[in-house]
């Protein structure tokens, strides 16, 4: 059901959510850049629709509003373990079509890949999504190539208009609110991007043979293995475990899981002192192939959603989409044709 909603009505709706939900959206954090006197667009809690940044892409994805960077799984004493309570409130998250497509990937990894992840499930079950219509593509976006420009499993969709917002609201409970506060009904479909400046073509015959291609060597030196590409990625879910012993006692502590990056040193360290993928080019290869090859082998669709954040954040200006477009030549090189 579609409506025309003005800012005041939108704010009323947001106020009504407050009891049950924290609302997260891309916001401008003044002075929040790593550089001095510069801002950062990142996810934060909002009270009003005007807080939402629609005209820029967030540097980090919605993932940080959903999955804690560092999450205590349990506290332990010598005898017992205690699981921390769940968050008091659910969350309403504003996100774009690429990101909503990423939610499907997160769900498949946390809920459909063996036993359900208890911690993810208890957060996920209380999340509602607001799709932000995309009236234009940003330079680094390649959602059309990845087929993620048409995600539709949202509770509410909002398109920015000059005189307010065009809202599509499949969520019946929410739709009632808009009906009752006098919003004019109108048919609304999400604003979609149908073409990106960045286009990606993946070779049909992509296989692990491409490991042998020379293209990876370039990244041994160019990549500084900082891991930013992983931390901004809406589909990276790797974490590492940390057992923390409270120092005064030494026998009491907590186990937490913390976001990890396959680009950062230590990711492949194993018991006994082994370590794999020491070169940054090898790490790049692993990441690329996970995003556009082996994940698909298992799930039938690509992991990468083409949001382009890894391109935008890389301090060394390494373009992930360019690497994807180099895979075809890489396959030709290794197959000798």
């Amino acid at each position: 059901m579609g409506f025309h909603v003005n800012a005041q009505q939108f704010d009323q709706w947001l106020a009504g959510l407050k009891e049950d939900y924290d609302v997260y959206a891309p916001v401008c954090i003044r002075g929040g850049s790593i550089y001095s006197d510069a801002d950062c667009i990142r996810y934060g809690k909002i009270d009003r629709i005007e807080d939402v940044v629609f005209d820029k892409k967030s540097e980090y994805s919605f993932k940080e509003a959903m999955i804690p960077v560092s999450e205590t799984l349990f506290y332990f004493t010598e005898e017992d373990c205690t699981v921390p309570p769940a968050r008091k409130k659910g969350a309403v998250i504003f996100l774009r079509s690429c990101d909503l497509s990423a939610v499907q990937r997160l769900d498949d990894m946390y809920l459909g890949n063996g036993p359900e992840d208890f911690y993810y499930e208890r957060i996920r079950s209380r999340i509602r999504f607001v799709l932000m219509g995309c009236s234009k593509s940003f330079d680094s976006c390649f959602c059309v190539s990845m087929g993620t420009n048409t995600a539709s499993r949202y509770d509410l969709c909002v398109n920015v208009r000059t005189d307010g917002f065009a809202v599509d609201c499949p969520n019946r409970e929410w739709a009632e609110f808009f009906m009752h506060c006098g919003c004019e009904e109108q048919p609304v479909t999400p604003d979609r991007v149908t073409e990106n400046r960045t286009k990606v073509t993946l070779p049909e015959n992509l296989s692990t043979e491409v490991y042998r291609a020379s293209l990876w060597d370039e990244y041994n030196k160019r990549c500084i293995n900082c891991g930013r590409c992983n931390f901004v990625c809406p589909t990276c879910t790797c974490f590492t475990m940390q057992d923390l012993f409270y120092t005064e006692n030494g026998k009491v502590g907590e186990r937490r899981r913390v976001w990890a990056s396959c680009m950062v040193d230590g990711f492949t360290d194993v018991a006994g002192g082994g370590s794999y993928r020491k070169k940054n080019g090898e790490r790049m290869r692993f990441k690329v192939m996970h995003k556009v090859f082996d994940y698909k082998e298992r799930n039938g669709y690509h992991m990468c959603v083409g949001c382009g954040r890894c391109d935008d954040i890389c301090p060394e200006y390494i373009s992930f989409s360019r690497i994807l477009n180099r895979l075809e030549d890489g396959m030709k090189e290794v197959s000798g044709s």
Binding site: P68, V69, S70, C226, G227, F231, T240, Q242, L244, T247, V258, W259, A260, S261, V264, D265
Partner: peptide
């Protein structure tokens, strides 16, 4: 709450600045 324990800050501070950072409990 945003720390990923990558150690990048500690390394940079040691190599480029005064070594004011150390890692403790990750």
């Amino acid at each position: 709450d945003r720390c990923v324990s990558c150690g990048a800050c500690v390394k940079k501070c040691q190599k480029k600045s005064t070594g004011a950072l150390t890692l403790s409990n990750f």
